Amino acid sequence: MMLAVEDLAAGYGQSRVLSGIGFSIGAGEVVTLLGRNGMGKTTTVRAIMGLLPAAGGTLLGGRIGFGGAELAGQPPHRIARYGIGLVPEGRQVFPTLTVEENLMATARGAARWTLPAVYALFPRLRERRGNMGAQLSGGEQQMLAIGRALMTNPRLLILDEATEGLAPLIRAEIWAVLARLRADGLSILLIDKNLAAVMRLADRHVVIEKGRVAWTGSTEALAAAPELRETYLHL
């Protein structure tokens, strides 16, 4: 397994958010974290990436294995170097850097993802390469956030709310890009509320309810369980 999360526990202050989260991702596999708001999906991502202290949280226990390395307790910059690229919730592009400067800020290694490769994936970024991050639309910022993560040449790409708040045409473009990345063999951990879209893209799904794994299984199994979708995923 590329990523193996076991018995993960985390919280904020006196509040425990995660209690025994466990799941895995294989090489070339697309896995989703599903669940209603506030169930612990973003906290799980923060724990994997070593970002809990910066967010005011604490990793309370568990194991996070990635390609033979133990990530729990390591700082975010070191975790990124193991080969995990993050597209965070809210995009978080550098507002006073140009598109090209944003991309080059995370460039690592002369491998698959270079400036020409990212511009080929997102032609709009090439057109806007001299614009500041703050001058981009929300959709363009999301393209930039994905391109910036790819410039680290990750083995695993994590996207937290991949298409939230985007116009339908931009959402469709993002889903098409993720399908291309999957076809390239990139492992992906995905959070998104568009259930129909993630079921078309992903191999397996992990449903989180109140900080615990309530269900895990294939797209086929999820499609065959309307009562599960109604219980855990519908508002």
Rank of each mutant, 00 (worst) to 15 (best):
A221C: 04
G130I: 08
R129T: 10
G62M: 04
E220K: 14
Q135N: 11
R204H: 12
D160I: 00
R229H: 14
T231P: 13
L144E: 08
I146T: 00
E220A: 15
L195D: 05
G28M: 12
R171Q: 14
L34W: 07
A47R: 05
R16F: 02
L59G: 12
G138L: 13
R204V: 13
E227D: 13
L222Q: 01
R155N: 10
L233R: 02
I64V: 08
Q141C: 10
A183D: 12
Q14H: 14
R108W: 14
V213K: 04
G22E: 03
G61E: 04
E227R: 14
L3D: 06
A69K: 10
G130N: 11
E230P: 07
L86I: 01
M49Y: 09
N102Y: 10
L195G: 03
A72G: 07
M49W: 07
I158V: 03
G85I: 12
L190T: 07
L33K: 05
T42E: 09
A72M: 03
R200D: 11
Y82Q: 04
L166G: 05
Y12V: 09
G130Y: 11
G22T: 12
M151N: 01
I21C: 01
L233W: 06
P75A: 09
L59A: 12
A223T: 07
V207W: 10
L8R: 10
G90I: 13
A214W: 13
G68R: 02
D192S: 01
A162P: 01
A134V: 15
A179N: 01
R81F: 04
W215Q: 11
T96P: 03
A176H: 15
M1H: 04
A214H: 09
M1F: 02
I174Q: 06
G68Q: 08
T216M: 13
V213C: 07
Q92S: 06
G56W: 07
P75E: 08
T43H: 12
T152L: 13
F23W: 14
V30M: 09
